[in-house]
Computed example of a mutant assay.
Amino acid sequence: MGNTIEVKFISVDNANKLIPQIRKYSGESISKVKKQIENQLPVLTWDYLKTPEKLQDLLDTIKSFEKI
């Protein structure tokens, strides 16, 4: 796992607003994403050696959190 970038939230006021953007990138279920946020687990994971083409998707998803 040394070639991955993981994104997690330390403090969130309203996790429900983040779930649609996370699911759009990850494809995970609502309950799984909510549990990951609540337990401060990574909600987005990207292996930059296996899928370098997904970098822009990851960046777009992260930027979408700033608008919430």
Score class of each variant (00 low, 15 high):
Met1His: 13
Thr4Met: 14
Asp47Tyr: 04
Trp46Pro: 01
Asn3Asp: 12
Asp60Trp: 13
Ile62Glu: 06
Phe65Gln: 07
Asn3Tyr: 08
Met1Trp: 13
Val7Glu: 05
Leu41Asn: 12
Asn14Phe: 06
Asp57Tyr: 00
Pro42Gln: 13
Glu28His: 10
Met1Phe: 14
Pro52Glu: 03
Lys34Tyr: 09
Ala15Leu: 14
Asn14Leu: 01
Ile5Tyr: 11
Ser29Gly: 09
Lys63Asn: 10
Ile62Phe: 11
Ile19Phe: 10
Glu6Leu: 11
Glu38Tyr: 08
Gly27Pro: 03
Gln40Ile: 12
Gln36His: 09
Lys50Thr: 07
Gly27Gln: 01
Gln21Ile: 15
Leu59Ile: 15
Tyr25Leu: 07
Tyr48Ile: 00
Lys67Ala: 14
Asn3Cys: 06
Lys35Trp: 07
Phe65Leu: 07
Ile19Gly: 08
Leu55Ser: 00
Thr61Ala: 01
Ile68Pro: 05
Glu6Asn: 11
Lys50Met: 04
Leu55Tyr: 04
Leu18Pro: 04
Thr61Phe: 03
Leu59Ala: 14
Lys8Trp: 13
Ser29Phe: 05
Thr45Lys: 12
Leu18Ile: 07
Pro52Asn: 02
Glu66Phe: 11
Lys50Asp: 02
Phe9Ala: 10
Val12Pro: 01
Val33Lys: 00
Val7Gln: 00
Lys34Ser: 10
Leu41Arg: 13
Tyr25Ser: 03
Lys35Asn: 10
Leu55Glu: 06
Ile37Gly: 00
Glu66Arg: 11
Arg23Val: 01
Val7Ala: 05
Ile5Arg: 13
Gln56Glu: 14
Asn16Ile: 02
Ser11Cys: 12
Ser11Phe: 12
Ser31Ile: 14
Ile5Ser: 11
Phe65His: 08
Val43Arg: 05
Leu44Ile: 10
Phe9Asp: 06
Ile19Val: 14
Asp60Cys: 15
Tyr48Pro: 05
Glu66Met: 12
Asn16His: 13
Asp60Arg: 15
Pro20His: 02
Met1Arg: 13
Lys17Leu: 14
Lys67Cys: 13
Ser64Ile: 05
Ile5Ala: 11
Met1Gln: 15
Asn14Glu: 09
Ile37Cys: 00
Pro42Arg: 10
